[in-house]
């Protein structure tokens, strides 16, 4: 596969093109470019294209309602966060969501299916705000940078975003516009370079 500089790959025009390809129903894989990430800021951008994607943000709401679907509507049936981020006492996340996607029902699943705690609310934040929140040990579940990298690159629930399965109609869910490999590479590179959140005024 042809190598392309990431700045080119993620220019707004191309991103728009990729979004179209990634629309629900197309079933097309996001392009996997074994990216050659030239700067940490570019790595940051690649990472954030995933973390700001609905597959991630739907479970990082700023209120007590999980979101679902390509339009990020409130979870149907009035499903709520509950005390432990895993739903209500009797009807909890695992009443419907199991350790893997269910292709018969179209119910998504992964181990530890749950909402991110309210301290990790991303809904409505800019990518810079999300990144700063992610680095804040008061908010990120007291994770060190190393633990954060592990969480972002190895945690099954996080990586579910790249294998989101099909919806109730059997139509594949939209995936983030970056391949899993590129995302992982980007996260590692960004953290390796000190996990610096770029200055949003110059970006």
């Amino acid at each position: 596969m042809k190598r392309i500089k990431t700045w080119l790959l993620f220019s707004p025009l191309l991103v728009a093109g990729i979004m179209v390809i990634g629309n629900p129903g197309s079933g097309t894989e996001p392009p996997h470019k074994t990216a050659e990430l030239t700067t940490p800021d570019e790595a940051f951008d690649v990472m954030m294209q995933v973390l700001t994607h609905k597959r991630c943000v739907n479970c990082h709401p700023a209120d007590n309602y999980p979101r679902q679907g390509e339009d990020s509507h409130k979870h149907l049936f009035g499903v709520e966060r509950g005390v432990a981020n895993a739903g209500m006492a009797a009807t909890n996340c695992n009443t419907c969501h199991q350790d893997e996607n269910n292709n018969y029902s179209g119910v998504p699943g992964a181990p530890e299916w749950s909402l991110a705690p309210l301290s990790m609310a991303w809904q409505g934040l800019t990518k810079y705000e999300i990144a700063r929140s992610m680095l804040d040990r008061n908010k990120n579940g007291n994770r060190s940078l190393e633990e954060l990298e592990h969480h972002l690159t190895e945690h099954a629930l996080v990586l579910w975003a790249f294998e989101p399965g099909v919806n109730a109609e059997g139509i594949p869910r939209e995936k983030p516009p970056v391949s899993k490999e590129d995302y992982i590479t980007a996260v590692k590179e960004w953290i390796e370079h000190g996990a610096v959140v770029p200055d949003e005024t110059t970006n």
Binding site: T95, C96, Q98, D99, V107
Partner: peptide, 13 residues
């Protein structure tokens, strides 16, 4: 002991 919707629960689990 947990409520589960069995139409969405793979037999292997």
């Amino acid at each position: 002991g947990e409520a589960v919707r069995s139409c969405s629960f793979a037999a292997k689990f």
